[in-house]
Write a protein that binds this DNA or RNA. Structure first.
Lengths: 185, 185, 185, 185
DNA sequence: GATGAATGAGCATTCATTCAT
DNA sequence: TATGAATGAATGCTCATTCAT
């Protein structure tokens, strides 16, 4: 649905820029070039619109993460690729990144059932688990390791976006190496 | 000022629970047991109240971080202590942690001048810089390294608070070791 | 027209239950199983739909009132029958009764020209007039008498519907007798 | 409270003229010469405002009804007075009458607990009960009789207000006599 | 005729802020 | 200092109505 997409895109952009509460539905309507009432054909409420937007981008991230993963390659290369995938996606889709972080760190996150929100990390947990089983990675909790790896990616993206230290490739490789040294066997 | 403190505490608690926009000034007044108008004797506006609250807790974190740091100890022990200090503070002061994260990940963060907000990491940057200079840590960007270390602490606290994997001490030591292995020379 | 009837019936039911303003056209459409736009093929507006519904049931009541009236019977029996007719119709068609009362007691009643609305009582006025002329009823204003009689019927139906004192037959006969004693010569 | 009274009066007037849903809160505010938000200091919601308005006038009616009742007078005179009291009050306070009728005949009436709403008739029931016990009135259900008497008053007021047959005193006496003849022993 | 997506004016309600006391 | 009643602009949402198909 074209209008639904327009609404979702306008919401993403505006919330990223202004925050949840500084983004009135009327402004979303204006930017999406639909009438205010139209939004309510596609979404039950502002709350539900935002939740759906989050679910959409959460799933998108999950699908991007393992793109191009090839189990025949050396695990270290695969690890480097996963890190790069997310870094590239987030830095090229700043709004998505900032929206996800804003959402995940606000109390509205609790509107999402615990299980569903835990599942965000599932693909990454599976991925590190493989590395653990094959002896490439430390034999520690996969849940913990996945969080640490993902957290490092987020840290690097934030540093990049802060403008304080833009990530050229060499620096990114350093960050990946640092992460790898932490988790490798 | 007793009332000012009451207002700040009420604000912290309510924003942590409800979020910025779901926390009306009237509710803050009620919880702080002052009249609505009284808040405006101590703060110019809601915005300024929140900003001041953030500044307060940001500085508190900076002071907690290096508590008990003793430059005569082995650097690795000092590193372990910094990590533990923050972990302990955040898990024992959940509201502060959640408030800082909520604030730092929302667009209102931009209200704070870039420099000031970068300075949050300054003590940690100095700390890792020492490790680099003495050859204990990798010779890479201190800014990057500080972010990675702090990001790992945040990751561990969030995992703990999610209830998905409570951190007993052994697990915490694992997380510290993983971080250390990443940054050490 | 089948759909038109469905719309009228849905409107009656919903307005009786929810009131005029708590009955959106979309809800009427849903219950009548037609599209929202379809209603506007049969009715000009919500206002006109409601007015037509009222006219419909007002006329229905007029036709029910004198059903089975036989001028060869004793007038007192005929009086009793008119009373019973309306009581029976209203208690067996609760929605119609409640809708008429709701409509007649709301300011929208003024949308109907005075004359037309006065004509609701016309058949009853004629009926009591006969009783007056033949000396069965008091020689007082027929308009007044008709209103008193109809008012008594309404009172009895409301008491019945309130559940506070269900009308079995004996009680109904008492009510009729009381009314009769008031108006008879 | 001066403003509260102004709000109640404005609401009464406007609802009587326009109906519940055609009376926006902004219009109430305007007529009461207060800000829109001020209404919500005194009332929780539009619904509660209307309910309170109804309760207020319901109680007022109950207190007016028996005004000047003197148990040493002949019962018939007392009966005539009760009838006259209500007729006079309603015709001199048209808005109150129309509001009560509009409210009582709309589905919102169900917001009021059954018992409370039944109690509206209680004073009148007690009054007719006295007449029954002393043998002045028919020995029939007091509940039924009270409803019939009150219904007659309402009928007379409505006829008067319709403009179709203004009630001068002689006519009013006729109406009272008709009612009395119906209920007297 | 029939549909239902789309419109946008209108509504109830909230809330940051002010100010007379 | 402190109060809390009062303000009124702003917000999320509804709903009668239209119109392209």
């Amino acid at each position: 649905m074209d209008k639904k997409t327009a609404i979702l895109e306008a919401t993403l952009e505006l919330i990223t820029k202004n925050g949840f509460h500084a983004t009135p539905m009327s402004m979303v309507a204006q930017h999406a070039k639909v009438a205010a009432g139209t939004i309510y054909h596609y979404f039950d409420s502002k709350e539900q619109l935002i939740d759906e937007l989050y679910a959409l981008h959460r799933d998108k991230v999950a699908s991007v993460m393992l793109q191009g993963d090839d189990s025949s390659k050396p695990y270290k290369d695969r690890f480097r690729q996963v890190f790069s995938n997310l870094f590239a996606y987030y830095t090229q889709n700043t709004d998505q990144f900032l929206f996800i972080e804003q959402y995940a760190n606000s109390p509205i996150m609790n509107r999402i059932p615990r299980e569903e929100s835990a599942s965000f990390y599932q693909p990454l947990i599976e991925f590190v688990r493989k590395g653990i089983h094959t002896g490439q990675l430390k034999d520690i909790s996969a849940k913990l390791m996945a969080r640490l790896v993902y957290g490092n990616i987020v840290s690097v993206v934030k540093l990049h976006l802060s403008g304080d230290l833009p990530m050229e490739n060499a620096l990114l490789q350093t960050a990946i190496a640092t992460t790898w040294d932490g988790v490798r066997q």
